[in-house]
Design a protein around this nucleic acid. Structure first.
Length: 528
RNA sequence: GUCCCUAUCGUCUAGAGGCCUAGGACACCAGGUUUUCAUCCUGGUAACACGGGUUCGAAUCCCGUUGGGGAUGCCA
């Protein structure tokens, strides 16, 4: 069977790394299994879904190379399907209007009472609740209402679905049965809307059942039915709720494997019943743990730095972000970290995903990004750097050939593309000089004298000959009785304004020896 | 409150009862290479949340505690 997976985001603003990580895992799983990766845009929240948000989403996916199969399905186009499904559920007795029936009654999905044959329901065994003394139990088509005692002795109101209480018996303090949920009673309740209220109840017993499934990442998962409640699938304004729309679309799109955030685990227990009652095959599930911020907390709207677009703006390469995100909550198992897209597709396995949240580490990501930049073909790096430098005003007046030379020189020491911001000195006279550098390298008289000589030597040096620059500096050092290499840093500070950078000989050549001669004189004058 | 999920170095992780004296990566520290910085090389600091149990043997299985997250919406 060919698997069909989907990424189904709500386009409500920016694209979050948590969201895109879900997209990546879906994409990887689909490509690994040779299945389909489908994009569905859940744009039913008309208030918050905007054209801009959709464009941003599409852009982010393209930037990361997340190509999808088939046409994008916009959920708003499916409204009629959703309502038809709700109608079917109502007709089959699997959904009912809340409260007194009016045109504006919201519709609830009823966890089916007769569900013993469902493949994802099993009987756990006998169970009981002790109730708060002398309280009532209400049994209706909407479920049970009863009052228990908290450990501190306070009464606590409980509500649960009818399906949770198979073979229910309500007892009084003496242990006598006050009420038994027979098939007749059940039919009365379900068929005629009868409401049974049992007063003076002390306890109740029932057969506990649970819903269970095998999560591809979390393993065996289950939840007792008596801890579940019926839930709304159509609002009072007639619009379908997430649960309905989501499940319906998964059915119409024949989705076979759902990979999503583990905040949906609880929903899965409910959706299983919906697939079943809608007559559809239930899909497989894989729930991914969340990505959390540097404080170990879930990302919130406040964490403005977790948007995919921000990483692009900060100079992160898409392939590096893609790779780094796969490392959050997943590992190959063989110590490989920097992996190509092909390697990832080959190695990807949902069963190897982590069960607990992963913290995003911007430093490690920058390191990975540096590895990707270093590995780039120089011609590609020149191109990308040129494009990225468009953000900086100095690029306008820069000669492309010179820029390429600088790019070649600086590639291996670039971690983030934003590092290019510091390349200004290659193209313009430094406006200020690093104070520590000035104190150490431009202040001592012997240095200043030697620097002046260097300027003179540079005047008559051939361009594009780093060896000549090196020889010239060595000659001056020897003549002035300075130690070898003593002039390198002074030249760097005078020419670049800073103390760190690539080989000074290469740097001088990049800037131009004549220009450097001028800069040295200017620096000497500025620091006199 | 109830229910669900979860727990290995600071961080991402390896680990499927004996290969564990717990491995790798980032970060950090020390040394080396280097004209500065970065790269690179070598070495180092650093973790099985806690308490019970099962077993000849537990990071690994079970129970409990604690911590974290989620659900409990006419949000998705």
């Amino acid at each position: 069977m060919q698997h069909r997976l989907r990424f189904a985001p709500s386009p409500t603003g920016q694209v979050h790394i948590g969201n895109i990580r879900t997209a990546i895992f879906n994409w990887l799983a689909a490509r690994h299994m040779g299945g389909k990766f489908i994009l569905r845009i859940e744009d039913t929240d008309l208030e918050r879904s905007t054209k801009e948000a959709i464009d941003t989403l599409l852009e982010c996916m393209e930037w990361l190379g997340l190509d999808y199969d088939e046409e994008v399905l916009y959920q708003t186009t499916q409204a009629q399907h959703h309502l038809d499904a709700a109608k079917k559920l109502m007709d089959d007795g699997n959904a009912y209007p809340l409260g007194p029936v009016t045109e504006h009654s919201p519709i609830l999905f009823r966890i089916p009472v007769f569900c013993d044959d469902f493949p994802f329901v099993r009987t756990v065994g006998p169970a009981s609740y002790t109730l708060a003394p002398d309280t009532a139990v209400e049994i209706s088509g909407g479920g049970l209402k009863f009052t228990t005692l908290s450990p501190k002795g306070k009464p606590v109101e409980n509500q649960a679905c009818l399906a949770g209480f198979k073979d229910l018996a309500v007892l009084n303090a003496a242990g006598q049965t006050l009420f038994a949920l027979t098939d007749d009673k059940l039919n009365d309740i379900l068929g005629n809307g009868a409401v049974e209220t049992v007063e003076h109840a002390a306890s109740m017993t029932f057969t506990r059942r649970e819903v269970f499934y095998d999560d591809m990442v979390k393993g065996h998962l289950s939840k007792p039915l008596d801890s579940m409640r019926d839930f709304i699938i159509v609002r009072s304004d007639g619009s379908p709720v997430f649960h309905l729309a989501n499940v319906c679309d998964d059915i119409t799109q024949n989705i076979t494997l759902i990979v999503r955030g583990d905040d949906h685990v609880e929903n899965t227990y409910r959706h299983l019943f919906m697939f079943q009652t809608l007559g559809a095959q239930v899909p497989s599930y894989a729930h991914l743990p969340m990505i959390v911020n540097a404080q170990g907390k879930p990302y919130s709207k406040r964490d403005g730095d977790a948007f995919v677009g921000d990483f692009r703006d900060k100079g992160v390469l898409p392939e590096a972000l893609f790779n780094y995100l796969t490392l959050l909550g997943w590992s190959s198992g063989d110590n490989r970290e920097k992996m190509s897209r092909e390697e990832l597709v080959e190695a990807f396995d949902l069963a190897r995903a982590q069960h607990s949240p992963a913290q995003f580490d911007a430093v490690k990501m920058a390191n990975l990004n540096g590895q990707y930049i270093a590995a780039l073909d120089p011609a590609v790096f020149r191109e990308r750097a040129w494009d990225f430098a468009a953000a900086y005003p100095w690029r306008e007046s820069v000669d492309r050939a010179k820029f390429d030379a600088v790019a070649d020189l600086m590639q291996t020491r670039t971690k983030l593309m934003t590092d290019l911001a510091a390349w200004t000195y290659f193209f313009a006279v430094p406006v200020d000089y690093d104070p520590k550098g000035v104190k150490k390298f431009l202040t001592p008289e012997p240095m200043r004298a030697a620097l002046a000589k260097a300027a003179g030597a540079f005047d008559s040096l051939p361009e594009n000959d780093p060896k000549a620059v090196e020889d010239a500096l060595r000659a001056i050092e020897t003549a002035d009785g300075l130690s070898q290499f003593a002039l390198n840093q002074p030249v760097r500070v005078a020419v670049c304004g800073i103390t760190v950078g690539a080989s000074i000989y290469e740097t001088v050549v990049c800037i131009g020896v004549k220009e450097c001669a001028r800069r040295i004189r200017a620096a000497l004058a500025a620091t006199a």
